[in-house]
Design a protein around this nucleic acid. Structure first.
Lengths: 211, 211
DNA sequence: ACGGAATGTTCATGCGGTCAACATCGGGCA
DNA sequence: TGCCCGATGTTGACCGCATGAACATTCCGT
């Protein structure tokens, strides 16, 4: 329901959406730490505290941005997979799809560093554990993960399988993305970067094949 | 040279070290964002601005902490590897060492989340690229990475090899660590967590074997 | 038409980073 | 020996940010 984009009636009308858009822009520009309530309000032309009528505070705004970012990531992955040509051999097709998804994942991260970081970076300080007993709101599905997992399962149908394989694959692409983005693999020339990406993909695929 | 620990003569004497210790403590407690200049100064019993006599500002303090954290991580990895029993078969020994290093890596991350995050998390905003042409100070070696790379090379001597294999392995453990720490794999019960870790390790090793 | 809920605004607090001006203190040099 | 400077701290001040409280406005349903 919270239409992410549509916002026309700015300045007065659907501030919530306007703020979200501004915040997403900010995240795109400088990652989660750049998502500053006051700045978002400023961009929308409204007083800082107005945001509190729509969000609990910066934290919730950030969480909303994160949802968007995750959705965009998943879209990028699916687009990448869709572009991939099929194959007669289902096993091969599965491998290709997995690889394509991973490339889409890393590609998105590299192209939209800020959004990617916003998608998964921790939003400190938020480890406030409710007294234990309070039913935690179920973490919403993370499509990027689901996509990977499903691709692996498809692969597993023809090869070995392993329950945590999805997490392993995810770890690889996630880690790779972060190392490339803000980690020590930052300033890697594009050429070598692709090399690293492909090697990592090979690792993921081989890990999926190996039972 | 900046002796990290030794500091006795607080309050006056080697403020720099005292501040570093306090900052490292802070990072350990709440990660990089918890490293707050004023708080470090407070803990050392000195005025906030005193820190500026020893650091350029919060950024440099944080960078210093990061170095420490990385060193500690490397130590943890080596300890883990040292505990690993050898093997007659050099290939097997190499595999075991690699796995042990990885376990040490993830173990450190899980045991010291704050420090781990401080070790690798981005220190925004810092993408100030010097006009292009200015010789960038060579990134100091990152031992954790070197350890992994060397272990893989040792493995490669008996199996296939691949240049970017180190980065791939690193990606896996790094990503895994972050997913476990602050990512969606946070609240995973310890049991399943180990499962994920082992599966990821299997992926890394199989990736190293696969030529 | 009216009253209250929704939505903004203004003010005020407190925290953190950082700068400039001032205070100290310990040496080293004249 | 004694004075002056530089290293090291301290005070005070400024600015941005997150948030909360109290006040103003709008707009809608009864």
């Amino acid at each position: 329901m919270p239409g992410i984009s549509g916002g026309k009636n700015y300045h007065h009308g659907d501030l919530r959406n306007a703020l979200i858009c501004a915040a997403v822009d900010l995240a795109g520009e400088g990652g989660p730490e750049r998502v500053v309530l006051r700045e978002a309000a400023r961009r929308v032309g409204v007083s800082p505290t107005a945001a509190y009528r729509h969000f609990d505070g910066r934290g919730e705004l950030l969480r909303t941005v994160r949802l968007h970012a995750r959705a965009r990531l998943a879209e990028a992955m699916e687009r990448a997979a869709a572009r991939e040509p099929g194959a007669d051999d289902p096993a091969l097709a599965a491998e290709r799809r997995l690889a394509a998804l991973c490339r889409g994942y890393v590609g998105f991260a590299v192209e939209h560093p800020g959004l990617y970081r916003a998608a998964f970076g921790a939003v400190r300080p938020a480890p406030e554990e409710p007294p234990a007993g309070a039913p935690r709101p179920p973490e919403p599905e993370i499509r990027a993960f689901t996509l990977l997992k499903d691709a692996l399962e498809a692969l597993g149908r023809t090869a070995g399988r392993r329950p945590a394989a999805g997490a392993a694959a995810w770890s690889a692409v996630h880690g790779l993305s972060l190392l490339l983005l803000e980690g020590p693999l930052r300033r890697l020339p594009a050429q070598r970067r692709d090399d690293v990406v492909e090697t990592t993909l090979a690792m993921v695929v081989s890990g999926a094949r190996a039972r």
